[in-house]
């Protein structure tokens, strides 16, 4: 998943309170541990829980990288299939990749109807709830999404990610590490035949 100039551009979409910007930084740190050049930043208006948040990550072989928002991502990560679909998918490169948190394959299919990119899905909310992350009805899914993201993007290994999470997460560290491993294990590519279901 590397474009021609050795740069991978990842855009993450979620909501305030979901740890989207943290996720961007964690994936950047994991790639940096493996000797890559990285950049990570988020945009948000006034900080509010529940408001849409976008984070940007660049991972490359060279220090020269643009310092602007990512309008043509190689990879899009959507923390929630109820986010505005047009915004989430805007500019995603043909042949690119979407990682989507969605409990149902059918909903995932309708979210990215007419796609020209790979779609990988996992029920991150379910996995997070299973690991006791967040409160009832509001699971905290960012570590699950990170586990899935290292697998589908290849920008860092799971080991590097786990090392970063161990360092950066002071509470519920064990559950978060297991949740990341579960995200890595359970993410699946959406198959074409799913359309028929």
């Amino acid at each position: 998943m590397v474009n021609t100039n050795g740069l991978v551009e990842i855009r993450l979409h979620g909501r305030g309170g979901q740890g989207v910007v943290f996720a961007g930084t964690a994936i950047a740190e994991a790639a940096h541990r493996e000797g890559k050049y990285v950049q990570s930043f988020g945009i948000y208006g006034a900080e509010r829980r529940g408001a849409p948040v976008t984070a940007f990550v660049r991972v490359g072989d060279r220090p020269e990288m643009p310092r602007c928002q990512i309008q043509r991502p190689d990879i899009v990560v959507a923390f929630d299939a109820k986010l505005p679909r047009e915004q989430v998918l805007k500019g995603l490169k043909p042949g690119g990749l979407l990682l989507l948190n969605c409990a149902s394959e059918k909903d995932a299919w309708s979210f990215c109807n007419g796609r020209s990119f790979e779609v990988w899905r996992l029920d991150a909310s379910g996995i997070a709830a299973r690991h006791g992350l967040g409160s009832v009805g509001i699971p905290i899914i960012n570590t699950v999404m990170l586990g899935a993201l290292v697998r589908v993007s290849g920008v860092a290994t799971l080991d590097s990610l786990l090392a970063v999470l161990k360092e950066k997460i002071p509470r519920n560290t064990g559950q978060n590490l297991m949740a990341a491993e579960a995200g890595f294990a359970e993410v699946r590519e959406l198959e074409c035949y799913a359309a028929a279901l």
Partner: peptide, 12 residues
């Protein structure tokens, strides 16, 4: 330095 583009950007 640029607000957000640098103030909030993580890099090495």
């Amino acid at each position: 330095y640029d607000g957000f583009y640098l103030s909030h950007t993580y890099e090495a």
